[in-house]
Design a protein around this nucleic acid. Structure first.
Lengths: 138, 138
DNA sequence: AAAAAACCCGAGAGAATCGCTCGGGTTTAA
DNA sequence: TTAAACCCGAGCGATTCTCTCGGGTTTTTT
């Protein structure tokens, strides 16, 4: 029951991206040094972010990544889902048709837990995180 | 971001235990067959449950396990914590003293997510689960 | 035109964790 | 006395995680 580093790195990287918002694309090298994350690992993470249309890549020298839409319109849930897939704490195949009654009861429990997680993640926009970060600095 | 089978099995096993509550101790073999879980794996899980004083073992022939207290006084959070440790989605060592501001901001996020999970888990007692299971049967 | 910066991408390697199994106990009811 | 059941540590195969390697291609800068 633990979020992999991929999800954690993704959110941290997106905060960096959002904080350097207006000033052109931000290179992975910059983020990698700033956050002490492997640059090549970041590349993999950004493939997911790009696929989910949260960032747009700018190729060539002095390129990098920019947000694909305003930080207000992007939640931490979007980011986590982009790199980790759907937010669910257990994966049950046979939907609603369990032969064991007990496991069906627990399945409902896990779904409520997953919903609780999603609720927090979807309620927090990237803009919120940036705001908190700026408050910390001052 | 996924609960291991240990936590899932633990809750399912406890539901079985609670449903056969009054009628003496329930053997692991019974639970194992009923829930299609390895008996020896269950043993390991019950070590945790016992350590957390959620069950009491009855040794010898026709022994087994019983709930250590009423199902109303036991939450799914207690059970999960007993076998999986504290409910937290990331583990950050340096508490409140991050050198990187961004990661501290995300740390707060993960804590809120973990709190969301705990809220659901601690609000659901074992008695609730049993009630839902009985409703399903009828 | 050339070089360098940066994204793009698949494959795989080392380590950790998961999900058990094995092989031994000890205790107690029948 | 036998068998059922709990008790317990060690370990093993498979999977997943976290990252590296080695190649590209694209575009800016010089």
């Amino acid at each position: 029951m633990r979020l992999s580093t991929k999800g954690q790195y993704a959110v941290r990287a997106m905060v960096v991206l959002a904080m350097h918002g207006g000033a052109g694309p931000v290179s992975l090298r910059f983020i990698a040094e700033r956050e002490d994350i492997s640059e090549q690992y970041l590349e993999q993470i950004f493939i997911g972010l790009k696929k989910a249309q949260l960032v747009t890549g700018v190729r060539g020298a002095s390129g990098g990544y920019t947000l694909a839409k305003p930080a207000q319109l992007m939640t931490s849930g979007d980011i986590v889902r982009a790199v980790e897939g759907p937010i669910k704490i257990v994966d049950c195949e046979h939907n609603g048709t369990c032969e064991r009654v007990q496991s069906c009861v627990t399945r409902e429990l896990w779904e409520r837990v997953s919903a609780g997680m999603s609720q927090v993640l979807d309620a927090t926009t990237l803009a919120d995180l940036v705001l908190r970060a700026r408050e910390k600095i001052n």
